[in-house]
Nucleic acid binder design. Sequence first.
DNA 1: AATAAATCGTGATTTTTTTCTTGATTTGAT
DNA 2: ATCAAATCAAGAAAAAAATCACGATTTATT
Lengths: 206, 206
Amino acid sequence: MSKNIPEKVSNRLTLYHSIMVEYIEAGIETISSPQIAQRLGIDDSQVRKDFKLLNNAGKCRVGYMVKDLKDSIEKTLGFSKTKDAFIVGSGHLGLALAKYDSFNSYGLNILALFDNDPQKIDIQVNNKQIFHISKLPNLVQRLGVELAILTVPRQSAQQVADFLIDSNIKYIWNFTPAVLKVPPTVKVWNENLMGSFLQFACKDIV
Amino acid sequence: MSKNIPEKVSNRLTLYHSIMVEYIEAGIETISSPQIAQRLGIDDSQVRKDFKLLNNAGKCRVGYMVKDLKDSIEKTLGFSKTKDAFIVGSGHLGLALAKYDSFNSYGLNILALFDNDPQKIDIQVNNKQIFHISKLPNLVQRLGVELAILTVPRQSAQQVADFLIDSNIKYIWNFTPAVLKVPPTVKVWNENLMGSFLQFACKDIV
DNA sequence: AATAAATCGTGATTTTTTTCTTGATTTGAT
DNA sequence: ATCAAATCAAGAAAAAAATCACGATTTATT
């Protein structure tokens, strides 16, 4: 099913997808590899190679069907497979993510938030409740949630991660700058905002 | 000065940096390439090659000085070069970023926020004021700001980006899923949170 | 109908990145 | 003092990714 798409390719697929959404809104039905390539500053044969991976044939002199491309990118990246998740850490970033409704259309369903600050407990954020972190293990089991979005301060990141792992969380989307130590059964995806910025700054601004 | 570090390398550098911070807090003074490699699930010669790029010599049987590594990573990634920035779009994400104090220690200095919603104007967020977007061109010029952090809805992203470019903004850190069309004089760094998640989901969860 | 231009598809080539290998060095143990 | 283990350094080899190149196809134009 999932044909083991390389990370570089799936990164480009998400960019192609954004362009498809834009073209559909503009009512344009076909798109060519040179158009996309120019937009992204990459080689057009690169684009065609990627589409080949999607089993999406184009037509000479015309290009590809925007709708078909969008659908097959969504299929390949698993938009339709809904993933339930908890947000752990109800600081500003956690709240921002809880209120980010676009998650749903990409198949990410936030069920609840957690925090250890008693003042935050029972507040409703975008129809999602904030629970005390001690309630998490029970809810993980009852709801069968496997994915946690970690937005606690760096200093407590590892400790909270350990707790999540004990609670049977299998996937951690890590928004903290900590490099988490986890057993091989648990997968971590690092979203290091500052690290990302520094790459930009280093590459382009400096 | 900036030796054109490949993106892959600077990505690893940010991860190494997090580990160095952790080791310093733990009071550990040296670290070896196999230790780091195991932690990140990569090859140890990879780590040494990266450190070679930093001109940071290690010592056989001992490893590298944590402090030295941290310093040279910071130097290479330009922590000390302070970059002033405006946040454009004062929704939840914009506010979360405005309140994220860690930015400062990485050399990113948020001066103000902007929005087009009259209700938000003049609110103070973490000692930074929210201005109406119409005030931006003047402030860009007066303060010499070149970097904008774009956190508006996708639908208005291109339009706002065009306005920023007209106002003489040179670098855009784009948190919207739109693929911005910009002239070659303007650099964009895409932080597509959903795209990032989909890569994770596609690779590990599906 | 013929020609030209745009585009796809794909194999070949080049470049970049990662991994492997070996030799030298340092430290701790016997 | 000698030996074994850990580690670095650096070149070689392998793997992965990006680019190039070119033939085939389609559409528009003359």
